[in-house]
């Protein structure tokens, strides 16, 4: 395969020299139209995404005979991958109107492939015990009153707001500033780190105010309550620096590179057909995170138990 690629790329160089200049996508894999080829699947850094990808990859490899290359990429880098040809598809996208504009409308290297069926919610959360003890904490107007509770070594004398991975698109810093909250946004670095902190907060009744989202398996295990921020209105988050409202609800969707979509292979069709519920995703996430299963084992277990769900995804004639 690689040797073929090298030869192809060498030929490409020659032809490009002839017709003047190399474009940025030169030398990358040609779309694997028709043939059972390789699908480059971006993996964004949260377990819910991983669950989607695990099931899709499992079906592609075990039921349809494709090779899947998983690429651990942050959201926006994955989008760049559409341009370079490194990425064929993203299977859980949270909004990103700006990226859609750049890559779908302007550059025309990607296309939307429809919703995953998951409903996304982003918000600020506190553990249940805090709500029991301080019932008015769920209103953002009272957060300053409780700021002292949330002090940590990292919060510089203010309350700590624990955020996640630096690549998550968030409005938290702007919210803290614009709502005049005495809080410092501290980045834990990853979803896993937030989850760990949230679990500790629940188990050891430690105060914690944190960025979190659904679908999320953890909600099946512990109770966390969303803090009410000023209500979301269309366009209130247009300028990321002036945001002073809550996060909108998201309809999570799938994106594919234009080449992948145009090839219209059975792999593309599977991605297009893929649609499940938050509960499905949480189940697989739970397998991966808490049952000590690898992505593949988790997908296998789910696939074996939910044939009715995935059967319709498999395109006819594959």
């Amino acid at each position: 395969m690689r040797t073929l690629r090298t030869a192809a790329a060498a030929a490409l160089i020659v032809s490009l020299t002839a017709c003047g200049g190399a474009t940025s996508g030169a030398g990358e894999d040609e779309p694997s139209a028709g043939a059972k080829g390789t699908v480059n699947l971006a993996i964004n850094p949260w377990v819910g995404y991983e669950a989607n990808a695990a099931v899709i990859a499992y079906l592609l490899e075990k039921k349809m005979g494709y090779t899947v290359e998983k690429k651990e990429l942050k959201e926006e880098i994955a989008w760049q991958g559409f341009e370079t040809g490194e990425v064929d598809t993203i299977v859980e996208n949270w909004g990103h109107p700006d990226l859609k504009k750049t890559y779908i409308e302007d550059k025309k290297v990607a296309v939307e492939v429809g919703p995953t069926g998951n409903q996304g919610v982003i918000g600020w959360y506190v553990p249940q015990w805090m709500v029991d003890k301080y019932p008015d904490i769920t209103d953002w107007k009272n957060l300053n009153k409780y700021a002292d509770l949330f002090k940590t070594s990292e919060s510089k004398g203010k309350g700590q707001f624990l955020a996640g991975d630096p690549s998550f698109v968030t409005n938290d810093e702007a919210l803290v500033t614009n709502l005049k909250l005495h809080y410092t946004v501290v980045y834990s670095g990853s979803e896993a780190a937030i989850i760990k902190a949230a679990q500790q907060a629940a188990a050891q009744t430690k105060p914690l105010l944190f960025y979190f989202y659904e679908p999320q398996w953890l909600f099946a295990k512990e109770k966390y309550v969303r803090v009410k921020l000023p209500e979301y209105k269309d366009g209130c988050d247009a300028d990321p620096k002036k945001v002073a409202c809550d996060y909108p609800d998201y309809v999570l969707d799938k994106i594919a590179s234009k080449k992948f979509a145009d090839g219209n292979s059975t792999a593309y069709q599977l991605v297009k057909n893929f649609k499940w519920t938050n509960d499905d995703q949480n189940l697989v996430s739970d397998y991966i995170t808490n049952q000590g299963m690898s992505d593949e084992q988790a997908a296998e277990k789910w696939v074996n138990e939910h044939e009715a769900t995935w059967k319709p995804w498999i395109p006819a004639g594959s």
Partner: peptide, 10 residues
């Protein structure tokens, strides 16, 4: 890019 960096990349 066309005649420089993209070739380097290639």
């Amino acid at each position: 890019f066309l005649y420089g960096l993209n070739y380097v990349r290639l």
